[in-house]
Simulated assay, not measured.
Amino acid sequence: MHPDDLPDPGTVLRHERTFTVDDVRAFADVSGDRGEHHEQPDEDGRLLVHGLLTATLPTKIGGDLDVLAREMTYEFVRPVYTGQPITCEVTIEEVTPRGDRADLDADIVCFRRDTEEVVLTGGFEGVVLA
């Protein structure tokens, strides 16, 4: 995306995903995080989704905007389990044009679609190049 085409401050961008058991296992393979809580199903047969796997929701939105991230912060508020639809909302807070680039700041909130319970909050800042 060209810096001139970035969304205006106040714009909310959304992405939703339901993580599967295969997603959690693939992330464990890539990350090497094989904590028992990610490999042993709970009493409902679900796996606990890695926090950083949940954090791929806002990175997908940042990727759609072609953001080169400088800083990302996350607070993992509640657990996410496989089979739970999670909605991520990224709110554009600031866009600062700088010639052939633009600095971008955004806030993040991810929540369970069915209960609207917040599971992750945070933000990111980065740059979009022309």
Rank of each mutant, 00 (worst) to 15 (best):
E39L: 15
V21K: 01
F27M: 03
D42S: 08
E75A: 14
L53H: 06
T73E: 12
V77I: 13
E75S: 14
G51N: 08
G83C: 00
Y74K: 03
P79N: 04
E71H: 13
L47T: 10
V80N: 13
R46H: 14
L65S: 07
D33K: 06
A28G: 15
V77N: 01
E36G: 10
D23N: 13
V77Q: 02
T59N: 03
D42G: 07
V12F: 01
L47E: 07
Q84F: 00
D64A: 06
V67Q: 01
R14Q: 14
E43R: 14
Q84P: 00
F19A: 05
A26F: 03
I61Y: 15
R70V: 01
P58K: 13
V21R: 12
T73C: 03
R78G: 02
D64Y: 01
V49I: 10
T59Q: 12
D44H: 12
T11P: 07
R17L: 07
L52N: 05
L47K: 07
M72K: 04
A28M: 01
L13G: 02
E43A: 15
Q84W: 14
D22Y: 00
H38V: 03
A55I: 11
E36Y: 01
T82D: 06
T20E: 01
A26H: 15
P79K: 07
G10L: 04
P41D: 03
P9C: 09
K60I: 04
R17E: 10
A28T: 10
L68V: 14
V80M: 08
L57S: 07
L53K: 09
D64E: 15
V21W: 04
G45W: 12
R14Y: 03
R14K: 15
Y81E: 01
T54H: 05
R14F: 04
V24K: 06
T18A: 06
G45L: 11
P79I: 10
R14A: 11
L47M: 08
G51S: 10
E39D: 06
G62E: 03
G63T: 10
F19D: 03
E36K: 04
A69N: 12
G62N: 11
D33A: 06
V21Y: 03
D66L: 10
V30K: 00
E39F: 05
I61L: 15
L48C: 06
R70G: 12
D44G: 02
G51Y: 13
D64V: 05
A69M: 13
